[in-house]
Design a protein around this nucleic acid. Structure first.
Lengths: 329, 329
DNA sequence: TGATGCGGCTGATTCGATTCAGCAGTGGTA
DNA sequence: TACCACTGCTGAATCGAATCAGCCGCATCA
């Protein structure tokens, strides 16, 4: 403990504490004393006791991360990677908990984190959406990750889905597509990804005096993507560009196109959203607008620990990950 | 704080503490007193300060989970879900850190966890393999998750890959397959999944006086699966049952089979390992032997916190998740 | 010569719980 | 009547750091 270090160095615990906390200059500790203490620290392999420190300072160098399901989510789990790395860079650790969507469990997790005096809480959701800040986080320093609360003035970190929508369409337009259909409709009312992407899609088309040629309605699963697209094709549906709302859906679209003898990208160009590993596994590789999950997680933690605490939403750009599903011009 | 509760209830902090720690009976506290204290707790919304408690007890009701990459891993991240849920059930929280495979970062993470007096550490790897216990964990209560250290006597939790191999083959044999090829070779020397699955595969075939008909060599990626299988087929390779070492690989195999006009399961039955979401997205749905990631994570935490600390490996069964890729008999 | 300032350090208190040792009061027993 | 056991509770020490207020000695200055 610190007292041992102090004894070994022949100074008081107070002095040792100042030195270890980088307050040597401020406290005008003689350089020789600093050296002695540092030697003692190295000598004894001193490791501070965080519980003791936290008891006094009320800070734990620990951030909480509560989510519904992000570890279970295929790609979204990278938010944890980002959060963990960013936390380390700022000398913090991440305490995580998953509620699985159960509000009672969520309450418990938040409660336990607050008992442990986390320095702040990141509240994350699997899918981009609006939420209500849980009661337990009222008054607690917190950042929303992949979600926003329109009723609260809070820092929030989300992907720029509208920009992503524009980028997706820009890719198709650049390849000469003019007859652009959108596949997929956001199934959840609170979800923000679908509407925002759609806004971007329309905005970009508008720059060429175009609009969405049509919408193939289905949820965002492989099966629905396959079935809805099959029906559409069977009804004579045709397009030169398809925007799929996510990669899984696009996989179903690929299957449907193949069954109807249409080739990607020769007969139709396809772009999608997610930039998941799946996009890279499809043949041809699916051009997809990437959800920057790692970056989102990292940014959320940085904003949480950032001393100048500005509220408002950070939209992280979504970049096109080029594949072979868009016909080269 | 506790003193407030005690004051409100008209007792000493000592008494209040005993009651809150469930030692009322042992300390012969009168039932009326217990009631008074509980009322005060509810009244004041008392929430214990864990740092203070930890300072005395040296326990934090917190477990560390260090891994190379499990959050970034598609399916493996469910280990975090399982760990988080099991921890909650045992009134603990999970402190997580990802090293990305960097030994220095790993050392730092472990160091930071120990400073925070975690009650134990789960050391997890993305892929099932053998490892050397990191120096920093020597003498620390720890459990290996998805890995084993042959040189140490430690509790360890891994999937039963050998049993999985047997189950995969049993499924094929039950469907009448006799000419069984294996696709995929484990690319990493320390990896345990491949050899164990192979052992199970051979063992089960042996019960029918059979052996593996042949091996299509490739690593476990979609592309390699596609290319190696294509070459094999082009060389006249045929089989009535294929065991793929994982689902991604199987996806490549599907692609190759399709290009050669072979239909699953009519021309060839396919089983695989992982039981990932991808298996469910393929057409036909891929029959796959599931890696029980959530259970693995949960079990690791339970063993870590289990008071009777037995060393040795727990192998969690891998179950077949039936799809449509095995021809019904 | 006495007041003032400053460099360099330390003693004592505090954070909020846990826990050991022990203390009144009561009733039973020899 | 003296002793003991038991019930029901409490005072004080303790965990390991952070931090405030202040102390001592020496140089400076009016």
């Amino acid at each position: 403990m610190l007292a041992d270090v102090a004894a070994e160095a022949g100074v008081s615990a107070t002095t040792a504490s100042y030195i270890l906390n980088g307050r040597a200059d401020e406290m005008r500790i003689a350089p020789a004393t600093v050296t002695k203490v540092q030697a003692a620290v190295a000598d004894l392999g001193y490791r501070p006791n965080r519980s003791a420190r936290s008891l006094r300072t009320r800070r734990t160098a620990t951030v909480g991360l509560v989510s519904d399901q992000i570890a279970g989510e295929q790609y979204g789990s990278s938010m944890l990677t980002g959060a963990s790395l960013a936390a380390r860079e700022l000398d913090h650790l991440v305490v995580m908990g998953e509620s699985g969507g159960d509000p009672e469990l969520e309450r418990l997790l938040i409660e336990e984190m607050l008992e442990r005096d986390v320095d702040g809480v990141v509240y994350a959701t699997r899918t981009a959406r609006t939420v209500h800040l849980p009661e337990g986080l009222r008054g607690v320093r917190s950042v929303l990750l992949n979600c926003e609360d329109p009723d609260e003035r809070l820092p929030s970190v989300v992907p720029d889905d509208e920009g992503g929508g524009r980028a997706a369409v820009a890719t198709l337009l650049a390849a000469g597509a003019r007859d652009v259909w959108v596949v997929g409709e956001d199934p959840v009312p609170e979800a923000t990804a679908g509407p925002r992407r759609m806004a971007g899609i329309r905005a970009e088309l508008a720059t060429h005096d175009l609009d969405v040629a049509g919408l193939v309605r289905c949820d965002w699963s492989v099966t629905e993507g396959f079935e809805a697209t099959s029906r559409w094709l069977a009804d004579g549906g045709r397009a030169d560009g398809l925007v799929c709302m996510n990669d899984r859906l696009a996989m179903g679209v690929y299957q449907a196109l193949a069954e109807h003898g249409l080739r990607v990208p020769d007969d139709v160009s396809v772009v999608s959203f997610d930039g998941s590993a799946l996009a890279g596994w499809l043949r041809p590789v699916l051009t997809s607008v990437e959800l920057p999950f790692t970056e989102l997680g990292a940014l959320a933690v940085r904003r949480l620990l950032d001393p100048d605490d500005h509220v408002g939403t950070d939209s992280v750009p979504m970049r096109v990950r080029p594949g072979g599903s868009v016909r080269p011009v």
